[in-house]
Amino acid sequence: ELIWEQYTVTLQKDSKRGFGIAVSGGRDNPHFENGETSIVISDVLPGGPADGLLQENDRVVMVNGTPMEDVLHSFAVQQLRKSGKVAAIVVKRPRK
């Protein structure tokens, strides 16, 4: 059984690379294997702001206090874009 651990990460936006993450998932883009609608970190740019803080497959729980459960992919992207220079991101990942 999976035990999820929650992490809060504060990312500083890089002028060229943004937050250095890509997200997939969302209500309109469920996971191809299990139908899960979570917003998921799909890519972490090496050397970017999120490197060492976020991991691929982290589930995004909140962005700047806005819940990311059962939202559209575009909504999640929009929340990240409009967060200015700093984003507080809450993620969960299975305990190893």
Rank of each mutant, 00 (worst) to 15 (best):
40 V>I: 14
5 E>T: 09
21 I>F: 12
90 V>Y: 04
89 I>N: 00
63 V>T: 02
38 S>D: 12
8 T>H: 09
71 V>C: 09
18 G>A: 08
3 I>F: 13
36 E>N: 14
28 D>I: 03
13 K>H: 11
13 K>D: 10
14 D>P: 03
20 G>P: 01
6 Q>W: 05
49 P>G: 01
34 N>Q: 04
57 N>I: 02
38 S>Q: 06
47 G>A: 06
69 E>K: 15
57 N>G: 12
23 V>R: 01
81 R>L: 11
17 R>E: 15
48 G>E: 02
86 V>P: 03
77 V>Y: 09
3 I>K: 10
5 E>F: 05
42 S>W: 05
3 I>Q: 03
61 V>T: 08
56 E>K: 12
9 V>Q: 04
91 V>L: 07
81 R>Y: 15
27 R>T: 14
92 K>N: 10
95 R>E: 13
68 M>L: 12
25 G>T: 03
50 A>P: 01
64 N>H: 01
42 S>V: 11
65 G>R: 05
12 Q>P: 09
62 M>N: 10
41 I>L: 04
11 L>I: 11
26 G>W: 01
51 D>T: 07
19 F>T: 03
84 G>D: 13
91 V>G: 02
75 F>A: 08
92 K>F: 05
68 M>A: 00
4 W>Q: 05
78 Q>V: 04
19 F>W: 07
15 S>Q: 15
26 G>L: 01
11 L>A: 01
3 I>V: 08
23 V>N: 03
2 L>P: 05
27 R>L: 11
72 L>I: 11
21 I>K: 04
50 A>G: 08
75 F>E: 12
1 E>S: 15
82 K>R: 12
67 P>K: 13
73 H>Y: 09
60 V>W: 00
94 P>D: 06
45 L>W: 06
40 V>M: 15
88 A>K: 14
68 M>I: 06
35 G>T: 07
74 S>I: 08
72 L>A: 12
62 M>T: 12
93 R>L: 01
73 H>E: 13
32 F>P: 15
63 V>A: 01
28 D>R: 05
72 L>C: 09
69 E>L: 09
25 G>F: 00
68 M>C: 10
78 Q>R: 12
75 F>Q: 13
78 Q>L: 09
85 K>F: 09
54 L>R: 00
67 P>T: 08
73 H>P: 08
66 T>Y: 08
26 G>H: 03
20 G>T: 01
1 E>T: 01
87 A>C: 11
1 E>Y: 12
11 L>V: 11
23 V>E: 00
92 K>G: 04
71 V>Y: 02
11 L>M: 06
61 V>K: 12
34 N>M: 10
86 V>M: 14
27 R>W: 10
36 E>R: 06
94 P>Y: 13
14 D>L: 04
71 V>S: 09
75 F>C: 15
77 V>K: 14
21 I>L: 13
74 S>T: 12
1 E>M: 11
95 R>G: 13
82 K>V: 08
90 V>S: 10
16 K>C: 15
16 K>H: 14
87 A>Y: 02
72 L>V: 09
39 I>R: 02
96 K>A: 09
22 A>D: 10
9 V>P: 01
57 N>P: 02
84 G>M: 09
48 G>K: 14
35 G>K: 09
13 K>N: 06
13 K>W: 08
50 A>K: 01
66 T>C: 08
33 E>C: 05
6 Q>A: 06
41 I>K: 03
79 Q>K: 08
3 I>N: 10
45 L>P: 03
9 V>K: 03
48 G>T: 05
34 N>L: 03
95 R>Q: 13
20 G>K: 00
37 T>F: 04
15 S>H: 07
46 P>S: 13
26 G>F: 02
16 K>E: 13
24 S>L: 13
31 H>A: 15
22 A>E: 14
73 H>R: 10
8 T>L: 07
60 V>F: 02
55 Q>C: 06
59 R>T: 06
86 V>W: 09
10 T>L: 06
81 R>C: 14
10 T>D: 12
39 I>E: 01
3 I>M: 13
6 Q>D: 15
60 V>D: 02
89 I>D: 01
31 H>F: 06
53 L>S: 07
31 H>Q: 12
84 G>R: 13
48 G>D: 04
63 V>Q: 00
16 K>Y: 14
92 K>M: 07
95 R>F: 08
43 D>E: 13
22 A>L: 14
74 S>G: 12
41 I>T: 01
40 V>D: 03
88 A>Y: 11
45 L>K: 15
93 R>Q: 01
7 Y>L: 12
25 G>M: 02
67 P>F: 11
6 Q>L: 08
4 W>C: 08
20 G>F: 00
43 D>S: 10
3 I>C: 08
84 G>E: 15
84 G>T: 12
86 V>C: 11
73 H>L: 12
30 P>N: 04
35 G>N: 15
96 K>W: 06
7 Y>M: 12
90 V>E: 12
64 N>I: 03
44 V>K: 01
14 D>Y: 03
40 V>H: 04
93 R>H: 03
68 M>T: 12
82 K>S: 10
4 W>D: 03
28 D>V: 03
